[in-house]
Design a protein around this nucleic acid. Structure first.
Lengths: 124, 124
DNA sequence: CGGGATCCTAGGGGATACTG
DNA sequence: CAGTATCCCCTAGGATCCCG
């Protein structure tokens, strides 16, 4: 497993990165993208379900992040209905599913950190 | 494997996150941190080696990122010598080494993306 | 119901120059 | 050799309100 980290740069969709790991982190980095992917991991969901399951994300940020995930091909969006109430379903694409092993590794590591040195802020 | 993504927030070093995956991504997110960790994966290295191996990062950004990685306990810094030329060695801490499986997963995924839909910008 | 428009700001990251 | 000091720009992400 040799990442392109030594001299050559890599390019995807017009964006350029110093290394493939950097490219990967750009697709799923930030505060919310992995969280969203985590919630879509098992099953497709509607917009309102995602909102309910992530109370702290604002509507604007949620739809913005979803749009970026869609643009990068990780998530697909399907609209049902013409007039309100309409229904919008989000799900992982085949490409998005290739991220699941990474997501599992990140999740396991995040939980490990929490156990070792973090704390839970109870809300319930 | 259940991440804390449903209601409760998590906290580490005063920073609060909606989910453990989000916490993990904050420690290693951004354009450079994973690249630096990748270069420190096998062996410890001096500052100048890191610089040589990552020609595109500026000195300021490199030392800033190293400082953050050190603060978050992923990397340790050791100084040898009193007066210039001094020698500074960076290496993964034990905690930093727990990130390696994740790094490998991210690297593999990044390489996969490159192969499927990216392109290499040759410099040599 | 599922967003968009607008405005705002914190900080990540670059450029250039200098130093113990 | 291994950084700092400044300065500056740009994007992620939040707040608030509005719409088909």
């Amino acid at each position: 497993m040799q990442a392109e980290c030594a001299g050559d740069a890599v390019k995807l969709n017009g964006r350029e990165y110093p290394c493939t790991v950097s490219l990967a982190m750009d697709l799923v980095g930030g505060k919310w993208k992995t969280v969203i992917l985590y919630h879509l991991k098992e099953t497709s969901k509607r917009y309102s379900e995602l909102r309910r399951e992530m109370p702290d994300i604002t509507e604007m940020t949620l739809s913005l992040q979803l749009k970026q995930l869609e643009k990068d091909g990780l998530v697909s969006r399907a609209v049902y209905g013409e007039k309100p109430p309409i229904k919008v379903i989000y799900q992982l694409t085949d490409f998005g599913k290739t991220f699941i092993p990474v997501l599992d590794a990140v999740t396991a590591w995040g939980n490990f950190i929490l156990k070792e040195k973090g704390e839970v802020v109870y809300r319930s």
